[in-house]
Write a protein that binds this DNA or RNA. Structure first.
Lengths: 247, 247
DNA sequence: CCCGCCATACCAAGAAAGGGGGGTGTTTTA
DNA sequence: TAAAACACCCCCCTTTCTTGGTATGGCGGG
């Protein structure tokens, strides 16, 4: 099993990859280091519905991937479901202890075994406002996923996901509009669902002034509605979920 | 710097803690292993529960923590803001490369230095629909946070978060509302800034039907305005930015 | 020093949209 | 068989958006 400084070198290489192919190569190396056969880095979405919406890099058997897509498992797969209930990585055989099973789960796992996939581990990766995702490693029959492998995967998984996110164009630097302090303040109250008049009371202003600030903010973002404004500002980081919740 | 199997042992101990005090003790050990002075584990952002529901375990200087609270920085702090835009851990000095700075940031960092806190790293931890949070480690003057420490922190951070989550009694319920397909479809158009009548045209429905879907969706999220609805659904992963962008 | 530029704050009125309430009925699903 | 999801309809009031303005203070460039 690789050491922590191996993970560090790995991380440095991962963050420098310039293509999905290079990323896949590195993940194959990671598999070799952990003694597993397959990796899968994926957003949890229905790929047949919108392959352009998310990232997926894997070296699973083709047939398994195809069946997976055909069944629309991107969002229903028990492993993906489990990963949406955890912050930390987990071994697949731990899943029953924290995620409620569904009817079709056993059939899915049986199908996976049919393709040689017997055990594995998954590192969930979530970013507010983005599609759920995970990085998984899978083992063939006879070689179970170990806690050691989990620790290694945990140390590199999130970086793998970040790298893929960069490649997909998310998280890239943006030159988005800048709002003034007052505009942001008004926007935050608006994002909390307050009306202009209520915001005016809170901020000790006239209603029209609040409308004015939001109007200017909208025009900077070229947003016709306050909802677009809020979402775009949220997307580019001008405001964040924490700001809004804290009202 | 500790090795990966140290992280594994650490993980096992962390998941067995039975009190916040025990958790704090373990985090002090982690600090010792990494050569840092302080740790801070915090949950933030809970749209449904009150802002005071979060977990906070830290050993920061009392005065710094008090000032931090008095300023209500739980959400404006640049480190917390940055942690909402990343899946992977980061060193504090990397923040400018992916999170937009705000006016007060420099003052906050200066204040932290005034209390001895010069550098650090943070592991973000997000679970869809739940309180998101982070685990941070901070260094005094002269000893910068290193990539090695980041790897170690990354390997244990999520487990620390899970432990705190169990202690806080949150492990069980994922009470985020579920929307029907039509509700989500309407919500996505609304989030793109479309009015009910325009949505009705697009979806080939009556305007009232669209209003009805959005009304039901609002009631499920206990949101009084469509903007709150959109943001909460965005936060818990029912919709994501990618969905909205693909219009 | 004046000038333009911007942020800030205020005013007004009409059209469009959202939100809350009351209903009806079919189809799908648990 | 009961509970949903889905589609449709009505009324009434509030809020938002848009379009015109006015006026102040700060700041940097010519």
């Amino acid at each position: 099993m690789p050491k922590l400084d191996a993970a560090k070198r790995f991380k440095a290489e991962i963050l420098n990859v310039s293509s999905y192919a290079a990323l896949a190569d590195l993940l194959v190396e990671a598999c070799a280091a952990m003694g597993c056969s397959w990796f899968a880095l994926s957003h949890h979405i229905d790929f047949l519905a919108g392959p352009e919406k998310g990232v997926r890099v894997h070296n699973y058997p083709e047939e398994w991937a195809r069946w997976f897509d055909e069944q629309g498992l991107g969002v229903n797969d028990p492993v993906h479901r489990a990963s949406q209930r955890r912050a930390a990585g987990f071994l697949w055989h731990e899943i029953p202890s924290f995620s409620r099973p569904r009817r079709g789960d056993r059939a899915i796992l049986a199908r996976a075994r049919h393709h040689g996939i017997y055990d594995g581990l998954t590192i969930p990766t979530h970013i507010p406002g983005e599609a759920h995702g995970s990085v998984s490693f899978a083992w063939a029959r006879g070689s179970p996923a170990t806690p050691e492998a989990l620790m290694f995967a945990q140390s590199i998984g999130a970086f793998v996901f970040e790298a893929a996110r960069q490649l997909s164009g998310r998280g890239a630097a943006n030159d988005s509009p800048r709002l003034t302090d007052r505009q942001i303040e008004c926007l935050l109250w608006a994002a909390r669902g307050k009306s202009d008049s209520v915001i005016a009371q809170i901020m000790n202003l006239r209603t029209d002034t609040v409308s004015e600030h939001l109007r200017n903010a909208r025009s900077r973002y070229d947003a016709r509605s306050r909802i677009s404004l809020a979402i775009r500002a949220l997307f580019d980081g001008t405001i964040c979920f924490g700001d809004i919740a804290k009202g």
